[in-house]
Amino acid sequence: MQRLFRQRRTSQSPGWVFILPSLVLIGLIGLPLIALVWRSAGKDFLTYVLSENAFSALKLSLVTSSISVGLALLTGTPLAYILVHSRFPGRTLVDLLVDVPVVLPPSVAGIALLMAFGRAGIFGTWLNAVGITIPFTTAAVVIAQTFVSAPFLVRSARIGFAAIDPQQLEAARMEGANEWQEFRYIMIPLAGRALLTGVILAWTRALGEFGATILFAGNLEGKTQTMPLAIYIGFEENIKIALVLSVMLLAVSLVFLALLRKLEEPD
């Protein structure tokens, strides 16, 4: 970091036209975060961290987001591989489809999930007939999180796979490698960094999921009340809990961000 700033000083100083607007934005982003940390600080911080409500929300968030990312990894990696390496009718459409949740407002995702897999939803009615109800369960939380977060993994994996030199693959094929071996021993190691970036992006998105969850999974402590929901409810009931949970999520986000930066650094 020292190196960075030194470099900055020797370069030509930008004019006020650049500095003033930049300061506005830095303040806009920085001040609320400082305020959040400032207001949550206090000797009762730990009491709230260890409170049952905060703990069950934290546990649920960690468990559901891990499962969601696992699902995204298991299904998103092969999909990204296909999208990069196969030419089939409708490929562009699938490509677009997978990107939709990235730009879709989460509340729209929630309504859509309810219309499809809700108890009275188009497919939910069939599931219900065989005794499976998804809405208002922990499974619904995972589905909502996977819906919104998996596309980030697919995007990242796609970029990673696309960057692999086709000649390497050709060489492997000449040596007699089959498609699985090619995927396992060449693509995965070479695209590892991109995959990891995808995992982190998906994870942060899953951890932060709110809109689709509250609509599709509802709000029940220990079962569907993830940290963002506990923060929303806490804001109305006990702002201290909301603040402490917010700071915890902020800390997790910063760790993920640091990891991302580390991954983006050239070797």
Partner: peptide
Amino acid sequence: VIPLLLLFALFVSACETAVTPAPTAVPTI
């Protein structure tokens, strides 16, 4: 990266040293 680093510096105590050079890059307004 610099604005982000600045933000980071505000929270991560390990980065405290980075805060001091910052004013030179951003003189008094």
